[in-house]
């Protein structure tokens, strides 16, 4: 029996954790299915919430899309640690020599992937449902801002879901913590989408919002790195 202690590499730990999350999701398909359905239902409600069946909501496309995605994100982020908590696996993970930041990164990457799959459905549906005028030629720009926003959502979401994990009534706590922090993401995401949809493109405006989102992601990344050790430090 060797006495040498293995030095686990964090890249392998990260890959293992992501593989585990994706395997679980592939087997149960709970999270992504719920997110996609929820977002379509929400979009449908929006038309009636903002007008009648005849009203043209092109002007509000960005807002409709990002309000929907924000609520969908809360739903998806809320599922982050469900398997660990319900099946009581967290102690096993925490007793292993994995840096807590690697846990965070794995969860965040899983959320980015789930959000991207949801957006694969939401972005075309928004175009079909709401936009009268040019939309499809700027779909690349919308995808880009969505990608950046997903990183923002994943970073702040993972931090808040870690905080909500052991609270009473955590399903209520998470939206209360998470949504105020999402307001800037909704503002910037909606603004950037608005800038490239349904009329002449305003690229300087689009760039400004994207840069803001990059700043958001960097700030929350720093907060996560600084505090995530303490989230799981009982």
């Amino acid at each position: 029996m060797s006495m040498a202690v293995n030095r686990p590499r964090w890249t392998r730990q990260l890959a293992g954790l992501i593989r585990k999350d994706l395997r679980l999701e592939l087997r149960t398909k709970e999270t992504v299915m719920a997110m996609v359905l929820f977002s379509i239902v929400t979009l449908t409600i929006m038309q009636f919430g903002f007008g009648t069946r005849d009203d043209d909501l092109t002007r509000f496309t960005g807002g409709l899309m990002w309000v929907t995605l924000a609520f969908t994100a809360v739903l998806g982020v809320g599922r982050s640690y469900v398997a660990e908590r319900e099946q009581r696996v967290l102690d096993g993970i925490l007793a292993s020599p994995v840096p807590r930041v690697v846990l965070l990164a794995a969860k965040a990457i899983a959320i980015v992937i789930y959000m991207a799959i949801t957006e694969l459905v939401v972005i075309p549906v928004v175009g079909i449902f709401f936009v009268k005028g040019p939309y499809w030629d700027s779909i690349g720009w919308i995808a880009l801002v969505a990608l950046i926003a997903n990183v923002c959502i994943a970073l702040s979401g993972t931090l808040f879901s870690g905080l909500a994990l052991f609270t009473r009534a955590r399903d209520l706590i998470l939206p209360v913590l998470f949504l105020p922090a999402l307001v800037p993401v909704v503002i910037a995401g909606a603004g950037a989408t608005h800038a490239v949809v349904g009329g002449p493109h305003d690229m300087s405006e689009y760039r400004g919002y994207c840069l803001f989102l990059v700043g958001y992601a960097i700030l929350f990344l720093l907060v996560c790195i600084a505090t995530y050790d303490a989230v799981f430090d009982d």
């Binding site: 702040s156 931090l159 808040f160 307001v183 803001f212 700030l219 505090t227 303490a230």
Partner: peptide, 21 residues
């Protein structure tokens, strides 16, 4: 403590996002 830190980061982000919008 963690939320006090994260909240304080959210303040300038909210401020700036409202401003640029």
């Amino acid at each position: 403590a963690i939320y006090a830190i994260a909240g304080f980061v959210s303040v300038p982000l909210s401020f700036y996002s409202v401003r640029i919008a």
